[in-house]
């Protein structure tokens, strides 16, 4: 186990883009080599050493912990594309933290800005404070968002979390989001993601969901008209086999989506509710 410590020298006026801060890039490098890694400041190409004090020792990627201190709310893209190791951020962090990471862990002891864990492919992102909009979402124009991994947010998250999440049980890809409370359009265009909300959600949860499970343990304002009530359940089985107990009302939907997952029988005119997405709201 080795550790590299970074400390922000002073807060920046315009955003600093530091996708070079990943265990993949730091592994096996000396302190001087790490200090020379590139960061982007406006149109200038500068180095990590210009903005951070760097101490510690770096060895193998998977045994490496990078801990970062300071107010990083204007530092974007930390942990982008990382595939192993661990990053611990003590303080708030800027946009795109851990986007597209495929392995390892990021722990944010503070709040995160928009697009935290966007298009996650694996690994774990934990945020102890709140997170912004588009947590674990697809970037603009992508039809496949988060494909695997886990995001845990203790506080509230913004709008359109888990946009275009794409999971598959046979392929063992189970994108999962656990959060305190959520803004509107939670899990929109959900294709097999699992979302558990400990508290309340805003309007339009599960809009355009094709498959997937959304569990809301708190309150939800009026759900979308295209969701059909199935009944009351006492236990929910998630895709990974885990079970949640408690009194929930089960809804199937979104039935407005024209996909085979929610078919209306031509013979009987009945709606097949068994194959499409599920929305559970505490009774």
């Amino acid at each position: 186990m080795s550790e590299i410590k970074l400390k922000l020298k002073k807060e920046t006026e315009i955003p600093l883009e530091a996708e070079s801060i990943t265990p993949d890039n730091f592994a096996g490098k000396s302190i001087n080599e790490i200090k020379k890694l590139v960061v982007y400041y406006g149109r200038e190409e500068l180095t990590i050493g210009d903005f951070f004090n760097v101490t510690g020792k770096s060895e193998e990627k998977d045994d490496l912990i990078i801990s970062i201190n300071g107010n990083l709310s204007n530092v974007k893209r930390i942990g982008e594309n990382m595939s192993g190791g661990e990053i611990i951020i003590n303080g708030d962090v800027g946009m795109h933290v851990g986007n597209q990471m495929s392995g390892g862990k990021i722990q944010v002891n503070g709040n995160a800005d928009d697009w935290a864990g966007a298009m996650l492919k694996g690994g774990e992102l934990e945020i102890t404070g709140d997170a912004g909009n588009y947590v674990g979402s697809a970037y603009r124009g992508f039809w496949k968002g988060m494909t695997n991994g886990v995001i845990k947010v203790k506080g509230k998250i913004g709008v359109e979390a888990m946009l275009w999440a794409s999971g598959s049980v046979p392929a063992k890809r189970l994108p999962t989001l656990i959060c305190g409370s959520a803004g509107s359009f939670l899990g929109i265009h959900n294709h097999g993601g699992t979302i558990i909300v400990e508290g309340d959600v805003d309007r339009c949860a599960g809009a355009d969901q094709i498959k997937g499970i959304i569990v809301i343990k708190g309150k939800a304002p009026k759900i979308l008209p295209s969701f059909k009530k199935i009944g009351e359940v006492k236990e929910i089985e998630l895709f990974n086999g885990e079970k949640i107990t408690g009194k929930f009302i089960e809804y199937a939907g979104d039935h407005s989506v024209k996909k085979n997952h929610s078919t209306v029988s031509k013979k009987t005119g009945e709606l097949n509710k068994s194959v499409n997405g599920r929305l559970y709201i505490a009774a």
């Binding site: 339009c204 009026k222 979308l224 008209p225 295209s226 407005s256 209306v264 709606l271």
Partner: peptide
């Protein structure tokens, strides 16, 4: 508007809504 569009889409597919 979103809720209305959502309902229109469901009705267009032949889904009988609860509302």
């Amino acid at each position: 508007d979103y809720e209305l569009l959502n309902a229109i889409r469901a009705v267009l597919r032949g889904v009988e809504l609860d509302e």
